[in-house]
C-alpha cells in the first residue's frame, strides 16, 4: 500500500512537472492581460525543438556528448521555440490588435502543425527512428541528488528522486512569485493586466510589458513540452501523449488563481488525477470517468470564483481584451 502511494506521488510529480512549466508560463502571460490560448501549440513546438536540439547535439558530438550539455541545449531550444511562437501571438494581438481568442487558436493549430512536422520530418530523414543514446536518456530522467538522499525511507523517494526539471520548475515558480509580489516591475505588470488605461496614464510602457511577459511566458510553457518528450515519453516524439496537455495547463492557471506558488501543488495534484487511472483502481468508478476529474474540478473552481466575486480571486481584469489607446 505504502509503496503504491509513493509510486503514485512520484508519477504525479513527473507528469505534474510538465504541467507546471505550461502553467507558470501562462500565468506570466495572463498577468499582462493576454489570454494566450496557443499553449497547446507552444508546448508541441517546445517538445519537437527540444528533442531536435538534444538529438542533433548528440549526433554532432558523438560519444563525447555530455548529459548536462544536452539538457541545457534542450531547454534553450524549447525556450527559443516558445519565444518565437508567442512572439507571433504578441505581434498580432498587441501591435496589430487582432482578436486574442482567434489568434491563440490559430497559434494552437500552427504550433501543433509545426511540432508534428518537425517530429515527423526528423523521423523520416533519420531513417525511421529518432532516439537518444541510453546515456543521455539516463541524464534526462536522473535525479540531481546523490543516492544517499534517495535511499532515505519514504521521504527519499518523495522529495529527492525527481528530475532536474522538477526542481528547476520550483525555482521558476518561486522567482515568479517574488517578481510579481516584491519588485516594482512585477507590480507594474500586474497593473497592466488589471487596467491598461490606468497604467498607460501612469506612464507605464504597456506595449513593452505585454510583449516581454507574453514572450517569456511562452518560452517557459514550451519547456513543459520538452520535459514531457524527454522524460515521460522516453526521448521519442509522441504527439498523442502530448495532445491536450497545453489545454490542461490553461485550466490549471484558473485552478491556481493566477498565483505561481499554487502552481506547484496544483500541477502535482492535476498530475495525480491524470495518471491515477494507471496506478490505482477505485471500485465502481470507471477509469475513463476520473480522467475528466481535473476538468470538472476546474469548472467548479471557475464557477465558484465568479459567484463569490471576491476581489483577490479574480482573473486579471483586462484578460482577453486588447488595449487601444486611441479608443476610449
Amino acid at each position: 500500500m505504502m509503496s503504491t502511494i509513493i509510486a503514485l506521488i512520484v508519477a504525479a510529480v513527473t507528469f505534474g512537472t510538465v504541467l507546471m512549466y505550461g502553467t507558470l508560463g501562462e500565468i506570466l502571460t495572463e498577468k499582462s492581460g493576454n489570454l494566450n490560448l496557443g499553449v497547446e501549440g507552444i508546448m508541441y513546438m517546445g517538445g519537437a525543438f527540444g528533442l531536435a536540439g538534444a538529438f542533433y547535439y548528440e549526433k554532432a558530438a558523438g560519444a563525447a556528448a555530455s548529459g548536462p550539455a544536452a539538457i541545457i541545449i534542450a531547454i534553450l531550444a524549447a525556450f527559443a521555440a516558445g519565444m518565437a511562437a508567442s512572439a507571433i501571438y504578441s505581434f498580432l494581438t498587441i501591435t496589430l490588435r487582432a482578436n486574442q481568442n482567434v489568434t491563440g487558436l490559430a497559434l494552437s493549430i500552427f504550433g501543433t502543425g509545426i511540432g508534428q512536422f518537425v517530429g515527423e520530418f526528423m523521423r523520416v530523414s533519420e531513417g525511421g527512428y529518432v532516439a537518444l543514446s541510453n546515456n543521455l536518456k539516463e541524464a534526462f530522467s536522473a535525479t540531481i541528488f546523490p543516492k544517499v538522499f534517495v535511499n532515505i525511507p519514504v521521504i527519499g523517494n518523495i522529495l529527492f528522486s525527481h528530475t532536474v526539471f522538477f526542481y528547476l520548475a520550483i525555482v521558476v515558480a518561486v522567482l515568479m512569485y517574488l517578481f510579481l509580489k516584491k519588485t516594482k516591475w512585477g507590480m507594474y505588470l500586474t497593473a497592466v493586466g488589471e487596467s491598461p488605461s490606468t497604467s498607460d496614464a501612469a506612464g507605464i510602457n504597456i506595449v513593452k510589458y505585454k510583449y516581454l511577459a507574453t514572450i517569456i511566458g511562452g518560452g517557459i510553457s514550451a519547456i513543459g513540452g520538452m520535459v514531457y518528450i524527454m522524460t515521460t515519453a522516453g526521448c521519442v516524439w509522441n504527439h498523442e501523449g502530448l495532445s491536450g496537455v497545453g489545454w490542461l495547463a490553461v485550466a490549471l492557471v484558473i485552478f491556481c488563481m493566477w498565483r505561481p506558488l499554487n502552481a506547484i501543488w496544483g500541477s502535482v495534484l492535476f498530475g495525480a488525477m491524470m495518471i491515477m487511472y494507471l496506478r490505482v483502481a477505485i471500485p465502481f468508478i470507471p477509469t475513463e470517468l476520473y480522467k475528466i476529474l481535473p476538468y470538472i474540478v476546474t469548472v467548479i473552481v471557475l464557477v465558484l470564483t465568479s459567484m463569490k466575486n471576491s476581489r483577490d480571486k479574480q482573473p486579471p481584469a483586462s484578460l482577453g481584451n486588447n488595449y487601444f489607446r486611441e479608443e476610449r
Binding site: 493549430i109 500552427f110 502543425g113 509545426i114 508534428q116 512536422f117 515527423e120
Partner: peptide
C-alpha cells in the same frame, strides 16, 4: 501536418 501549418 503541413496542412495545419498552412492553415495557421
Amino acid at each position: 501536418s503541413i496542412a495545419d501549418i498552412i492553415t495557421g
